[in-house]
């Protein structure tokens, strides 16, 4: 017999439900929706710290200025390089590691998962300080080792030389980014339907064929997720730049995220900084959409 709730009871249930939702909703509205709307609004103004002059609505002037701002364009270019290098490398490297370790026994498997996940759970400031020490121009371990084996005869200023600085940042980013994808891939590979793998092997499929025809399609959702989060993380690379290079030398490590911070909190050009934030959000949204689309088609 079908039981139906009275309208009064249903209303009460709904109210209770909404009350439970309320804290999250307040948080979401206050810390996500409001800042987003505010960011878009301010990007059309000349908002700054000056209390003596009222904020003016300047339409698209900030957006026009962006494309004439050499530092922004340099930051955009550097950000794109970071994304183009780190996203494929993180995905391929983590898949390779996961493929190598996912069949291991529990003990060694846990060991490798811990090893690769440690940089993720270690505070970014601590990780950065250690890397800064390793890169040090005067007593860093990289110079010490490379000089020791005769690769270089003079210390290299890794973070102070425009030729090397961005590559150094990307290297750190890679080490802190691969932990989560490896864990996710290990889990995804372990969940691949073994009966299909065995059937393919019985039919004479090679390891490569098994991987591309059986495993790869089944781990595609995980790959998509990893692609999206790695892309977003790469676009939002900030702490490393702030702690290590401040965007230098000579803008070699300037990224959009760091330039937003610098423009808003050092030059106090809130409107212009927000315009950059909007552009960055659009870039991330477009790339994520493309990634979803491509994965869906596959």
């Amino acid at each position: 017999m079908k039981q139906t709730m009275s309208p009064r009871l249903r209303r009460r249930e709904n109210i209770s439900g909404y009350l439970f939702l309320l804290p999250s909703l307040v948080f979401f509205l206050g810390f996500v929706v409001y800042p987003m709307v505010s960011c878009i609004y301010l990007s059309f103004t000349d908002a700054n710290m000056d209390a003596n002059t009222p904020t003016k609505w300047i339409w698209f002037a900030n957006y026009v200025e962006l494309w004439q701002d050499e530092v922004f364009l340099k930051g955009l270019w550097n950000t794109i390089i970071i994304v183009l290098v780190s996203v494929p490398v993180v995905c391929i490297f983590s898949l390779w590691v996961a493929s190598a370790i996912h069949k291991m026994k529990e003990g060694p498997l846990s060991f490798f998962r811990i090893v690769f996940y440690l940089p993720v759970i270690t505070g970014s400031v601590a990780v950065t300080v250690v890397w800064k020490w390793m890169y040090n121009n005067y007593y860093g371990i990289f110079n010490y080792l490379l000089k020791g084996v005769g690769v270089i005869d003079k210390n290299i200023n890794w973070l102070g030389d425009p030729k090397y600085a961005l590559a150094c940042i990307i290297l750190i980013l890679l080490t802190t980014s691969v932990g989560q994808p490896i864990v996710l891939y290990v889990s995804a590979l372990s969940n691949v339907d073994q009966s299909l793998v065995e059937a393919a092997e019985v039919d004479g499929a090679t390891n490569t064929q098994v991987f591309w025809k059986i495993r790869w399609p089944q781990i595609m959702p995980t790959t998509l997720y990893i692609l999206v989060i790695t892309t977003i993380n790469s676009f939002q690379c900030f702490a490393l730049i702030q702690l290590l290079t401040s965007g230098g030398p000579n803008y070699a490590t300037e990224t959009i995220m760091y330039y937003i911070y610098y423009t808003a909190f050092k030059l106090y050009r809130f409107g212009y900084g927000n315009a950059m934030g909007v552009v960055l959000a659009i870039f991330i949204a477009i790339l994520s959409a493309i990634q979803f689309r491509m994965a869906k088609e596959k």
């Binding site: 209770s16 009350l19 439970f20 309320l22 804290p23 307040v26």
Partner: peptide, 11 residues
Amino acid sequence: ALILAFCMIFA
């Protein structure tokens, strides 16, 4: 439930 919800809000 109501008390709990308010507690969460105040928290």
